[in-house]
Design a protein around this nucleic acid. Structure first.
Lengths: 154, 154
DNA sequence: TCCATATCGATGCACTTGCATTTAACCACC
DNA sequence: GGTGGTTAAATGCAAGTGCATCGATATGGA
């Protein structure tokens, strides 16, 4: 049951978008602050390490990782540089494609992801979870799921 | 009816937060892309101009604007520099406080904000509004409102 | 009054991001 | 098997951001 194809958003949609942006910004800033004060790297590192850990020993091609993380290619290339410098990932030549690489997480990388989760998880709970009933959280989850699926067509 | 004060977030909360971040990122990137391809400035300029327009001829102190926009002070100082260079705002000495300034939007600034809205509004509709029923939009709005109010205590 | 402390805003520096370009390898077609 | 167009990844450069600091003014207490 989508809205009519009007050109201009309703005031509810405008406010929903404004609050979406605001809530994300508040939460992200608070989470980043906690990570930093725990001496841990930024959120972007966590996202990358998590994807790579999920990918397992087979690793991921940079462009696959970029698609998951919504990161621009040049930006991702340098994020991998930094992760590699800290020995959290390894760049390996790709068998199937001479141009490409495969990025694989290291033991140290898994350790760092786990340590970050020790701060990140509780931060999510205290910043997001603690202010919502479980019905609200479920509803938020569902609606955002719809929104994201809809945006795939962009 | 808030959740219990557990340290670890439920999987629903984790997914809700992940999707919140993702949805915001997708939408913001898409909006920025449209603004740029219309030859218009970035979203941050819109937010600043809108706040200043709402403040009217009395303007706003930089630190007030920073509070509204969740911008760091140094960052804001330079955003104002850029807005001032384009003659969209004026810096005026503050009567009440010799350290401070008052930032006031110009006629050109109001014009730019209006032109940006011509792209931004439809973008919100096609990226956010078009994928949600009005009930979903209202629910999203309400839950995010709760979340933001809760975060005031951070 | 005078001084210590706090707040407002700007700035130097390092780091990150985006854009455009470059290099290398792949692939489809002739 | 060449050749043209496409895709993967890196890089130079400009712009934006965060951090720490600084100068200037305000404020509260001795």
């Amino acid at each position: 049951m989508q809205q009519a194809m009007t050109r201009h958003p309703s005031s509810t949609v405008i406010r929903a978008w404004t609050r979406l942006a605001r809530a994300q910004q508040i939460a992200a800033q608070a989470i980043e602050r906690r990570l930093k004060s725990a001496g841990l790297p930024a959120l972007a590192w966590y996202d990358a390490l998590l994807e790579l850990e999920r990918a397992g020993p087979a690793g991921l091609r940079p462009f696959e990782l970029g698609r998951e993380l919504l990161l621009s290619q040049c930006n991702l290339s340098r994020l991998i540089d930094r992760l590699e410098q800290e020995k959290y990932v390894e760049r390996r030549a790709c068998q199937d494609d001479g141009r490409g690489q495969v990025i694989v997480i290291t033991r140290a990388g898994r350790g760092m992801r786990r340590r970050m989760w020790g701060v990140y998880g509780p931060a999510i709970q205290s910043i997001v979870g603690a202010h919502l009933s479980s019905a609200q959280a479920a509803s938020l989850d569902t609606v955002l799921g719809t929104l994201i699926s809809g945006s795939r067509s962009l």
